[in-house]
Nucleic acid binder design. Structure first.
Lengths: 247, 247
DNA sequence: CAGGTACCTTGACCGAGATCAAGTGGAAAC
DNA sequence: GTTTCCACTTGATCTCGGTCAAGGTACCTG
């Protein structure tokens, strides 16, 4: 309920995702054109932002909060296919109907662009199309890394992989680096983690307990995680722990 | 050994993937610029086209044959993360080192573009960038469908899903439609199917035998498949069998 | 404070798919 | 023709993670 009004409108110049979102490369004049077709929408934790199959009147960016992309089979089995963080893009230009459910896992603010005007803007300003291509290629890489997790990793490795992804993302946002202990809050319930990793929530819970018992992680409450040794966690994830590159 | 010379060079105008590849939208003048930086390369079945980590001097399109994108863990577990068919794009503009292994599963002809010139061409001709965005978005959708298969489907459903993907692709290339029996040759070994689906080759073999026993498919030899009833197969895959849309 | 609810943990048991092992079939090689 | 090899099949057994079930904990609300 609090502080929502501040998002009813603000300038692109002051936008917290200005330098990472689909508009990152736009110049002042292009931003102006975007401003003309944009509007903000707020969603509460748990709310469904888009239902699969819905007509898409808009595309847009996550400004703050975390949302999930999920696919559901007729019998109810669900698989998360995307985790949307601030600056991530929602929707597909040129597509009428949504292909996935989009749900807010925390309170979410979205910067929406009316779809048709956005599409024509895209065809005239290469900066937007080019940035969107770059972001889509990154997402494709992430999806492929995730496929290895889903197809070939054990439950323990899956949990360790998820934790290391979240840890790296947090480190990259907060600019803290990966040496020394890392702390963060899990933005997902056990069930959402299970849907992410192709597991059941019971298995997620058991493996988190096991990693805690083995001192790979520390837990404060149920959501606050401390990682004393990032290298150790990455070994558990089955990843090359040779430092690696920070995106 | 036979008939390779014909691919040493031919005109883009006569190219079998002219209307589907990254160059699909290019006009005559743009094609000319592409011609100047392109060359053909032939690979034999089983050959590795690109090793993960290699410097990428080129990007390109599969002209004919089938290749796979795979990721491998240190202990040897491998997961296929992409199946490359004629017209599919290989490589990522702007990236120096290959992220995945690319292997030819049949004899493959590639149309390669030297990377640096291709990148600068891309920034001047929106037709290429736009087509690449479209293809990347399609690949991302395919990857997400695949994530549902890997994370939530049973072994039997996985096999049925793979067969239905191949069947639909063949139908779309040969323009035969999906009513009536469908026939095709499996382009993958049991092991490659296992790597695709996150299974072992033994499980793949058993499930194929089971689908044959239950008359969902017919086998002639080990590779030639006949699908008497596509709706039945899609039920087995756990997909909505409501006809669906053909891409 | 009691009661409810949402989220999480833990235990007991079970089964789908992995693992280990042996055998088959067909095509190329000698 | 037989040897070899590779892709594949099938069987026996094991195990990881799923299923079912019973609490536990923190935070609401009345």
């Amino acid at each position: 309920m609090t502080m929502k009004a501040q998002f009813d409108h603000f300038n692109c110049e002051d936008c917290p995702i200005r330098h990472r979102a689909v508009c990152a490369r736009c110049d002042a004049q292009e931003l102006e054109q975007l401003e003309a077709i944009k509007y903000y929408r707020n969603f509460e934790a748990g709310q469904t932002i888009i239902w699969s199959g819905d007509q898409m009147g808009f595309v847009g960016s996550v400004v703050s909060g975390i949302a999930t992309l999920t696919q559901t089979m007729e019998d109810g089995r669900t698989q998360m296919v995307g985790l949307l963080l601030p600056s991530d893009f929602v929707g597909r230009p040129g597509r009428d109907a949504a292909a996935y459910d989009v749900q807010a896992t925390t309170d979410v603010v979205m910067c929406c662009f009316r779809r048709k005007p956005f599409e024509s803007l895209m065809s005239t300003t290469p900066h937007i199309a080019h940035r969107l291509l770059q972001m889509t290629l990154d997402e494709l890489d992430a999806a492929r890394e995730w496929m290895l997790v889903l197809g070939r990793k054990t439950a323990r490795e899956k949990i360790a992989s998820l934790l290391s992804i979240i840890a790296r993302r947090d480190a990259s946002i907060s600019q803290k680096g990966l040496s020394g202990p890392i702390m963060f809050d899990l933005p997902l319930t056990r069930e959402a983690m299970a849907d992410y990793l192709g597991l059941t929530l019971e298995t997620v819970s058991r493996q988190i307990s096991a990693l805690k018992r083995d001192e790979v992680i520390k837990l404060t409450g149920k959501r606050h995680v401390t990682i004393p040794d990032m290298g150790r966690l990455m070994e558990e994830a089955g990843d090359d722990s040779d430092g690696g590159y920070l995106n």
